[in-house]
Design a protein around this nucleic acid. Structure first.
Lengths: 341, 341
DNA sequence: TTGTAGGCGTTATCAC
DNA sequence: GTGATAACGCCTACAA
């Protein structure tokens, strides 16, 4: 039988309460006693039973996801996965809530974060742009004792802490290599479209993309990034212009997470089967485009994985135990028509 | 506060013990009482607390993985992931064991399965070739009351039951499309190498591969599958012959899960940068080959995911609750040099 | 600084 | 058939 806290208390010659204090790093125990307990842990090979520990805490774990108020299809997927885990989590004594913030207004957003109280949350996963106000708000949350982890959009990797999301530079590189391999032309020009290059994510993807193209595909020339500002009309204009002005166009890289609008516009123009198109994220639009051969490949991060990984990491932090590193590294998925599952 | 069994007992006008009997489908309760409890469940929105339930069962969950005795690098990865979950599982009241069977000898293998007792296992994930003896042994295990699920190698999908592993036909199709897209030649010949075409997995991959090539890449001709029987010398001979006899060779598809030997042999010959090579499974050998540009792409199933998914499914079955379908579908991963993480 | 006792929401073992 | 009641292993008052 596995040793229990009772065995441990006996082995260390202390009471259950003291064992609990040491186990959970609570104050009010003499160093000597702490050592005695720790030695006993080693000696009898004690390992805490998380199931019992969770049950004994009256309240379960309460986690939150901070998400932008306005979002694209990718965000819809994320929210659907959060809903899934909400349902499944109840039986495991875990509740998950979402908090929407106004991404456009850093002050409002920061204020929303400030309102999150320690009494309501054990940990929060935060998807938010990198602004001074938000960074401060996050720091203050931590001081209040709420665990936080960056979610999908990285907050400049402040401490070499965990981060749930993909390496965007590698994602861009992946897109770059697929573009290079799929284009069979001797020479050609590649266009890059995104909503805005403001975000760090876009910058990193572009860097990765260029790295690969410049290094391994000298036959291709990549044009400056075109910004749509998520405006359909502007998007249409951009695509029309690029198609008309670049006779050597062989590929289009849709770099943002909102490929729906560019794809719609593109489908009005694309007649040339040799134009290679690559986008990000698996959404209803991109999946349909992949099936219809309007898109050649998708570079994606799995929304379900992101959400579950965030929750697992927060929970592990709460319980003060390590996570399986191999499980929590977010994979850069490549999707084509045949592995869409 | 969430309703507990106590609340439920009160609402149904019965005792805790009866509630438990109904909840766990145990016999010895009048139909009328069962209905009363079920109605009360609906009425008060009761949902069982799995944490408490797990704790209250004296023993935790005991699962097993049946694996072949002899294996390749892919199997090593699987075992490493099982070890990981063994460590992590203890705190969650779950133990995981592996049982190695002699794949070459169906009778011995079946005998090994027969030895697995209900007292020792709540559920077993089985990776085994599809032979009458093994099929029977599995059926008998089920009759004994042990939950079983096919693992990686499918047992002809007997009941439309769960299956942990990839759709091999889709995996072959994925390899086919990558081959078609990566080969830029006007015309060419593609070779297919595997250990043996005995296994259903190989057949299905080949079907998927051919589907795509025939349908979408008329410029390519796929040669009959070459079998290495996992013999290095034979592999070398095969590769030498194919390189010499097929001047139009533009691609090699290593269809089995053991790409190490073919890759080694290939590296002795490959000088032509235009030869596209695609293999299966992420292992030290294939990863190194991908990095060294000796391999262009990998079609893989994630070993960690496979193992954890099997455990989650077994556990859910034990606890008589559903799984997250989106999480348990094994993805067909495409790996290139840039998304190897 | 340390210990005692009661409780978390189930399951299991007895009686009736 | 059904109902009390004692575990399960840990946490948390409150007492000493």
């Amino acid at each position: 039988m596995r040793p229990t806290t009772k065995d441990l208390a006996q082995a260390a010659g202390v009471s259950l309460a003291t064992v609990d204090r040491v186990l959970n790093g609570r104050p009010g125990v003499r160093k000597k006693t702490v050592d005695a307990v720790n030695n006993a842990i080693q000696k009898i090979g004690f390992e805490r039973n998380q199931v019992a520990a969770t049950l004994a805490r009256k309240r379960g774990y309460r986690f939150g996801f901070v998400l932008p108020k306005e979002g694209d299809e990718f965000l819809d997927e994320i929210m659907e996965r959060i809903r899934e885990i909400q349902r499944a989590g109840r039986a495991e004594m875990m509740s998950v809530k979402t908090i929407r913030i106004d991404e456009q207004d850093p002050h409002k957003a920061a204020a929303s974060l400030s309102r999150l109280k320690t009494e309501d949350f054990d940990g929060i996963a935060i998807m938010a742009p990198e602004t001074p106000q938000i960074r401060d708000a996050i720091l203050r949350m931590r001081e209040r004792g709420i665990l936080t982890i960056p979610f999908i959009s990285n907050q400049q990797n402040d401490e070499n802490d965990v981060f749930v999301g993909i390496d965007n530079r590698a994602a861009g590189a992946t897109a770059g290599r697929l573009m290079g391999r799929f284009v069979c032309a001797q020479q050609g020009v590649v266009a890059v479209i995104t909503d805005t290059v403001q975000a760090r994510d876009s910058l990193e993807r572009r860097l990765g993309f260029d790295d690969v193209i410049n290094h391994d595909f000298a036959n291709l020339r990549v044009l400056p990034t075109l910004e749509t500002y998520a405006d359909p009309e502007r998007t249409q204009r951009i695509i029309r212009t690029i198609m008309a002005s670049q006779p050597d166009l062989v590929g289009i890289y849709m770099m943002g997470s909102e490929a729906r609008v560019p794809l719609e516009m593109l489908s009005q123009f694309r007649t040339d089967e040799d134009l290679v198109t690559i986008a990000h994220e698996k959404t209803p639009s991109t999946v349909a485009a992949l099936r219809d051969r309007k898109l050649d490949a998708l570079v994606a991060q799995n929304p379900g994985h992101l959400v579950r990984s965030a929750v697992r990491i927060l929970r592990a932090k709460c319980e003060n135990r390590p996570t399986l590193a191999s499980q929590e590294k977010t994979r850069i998925e490549i999707l084509i028509a045949d592995n869409l599952y």
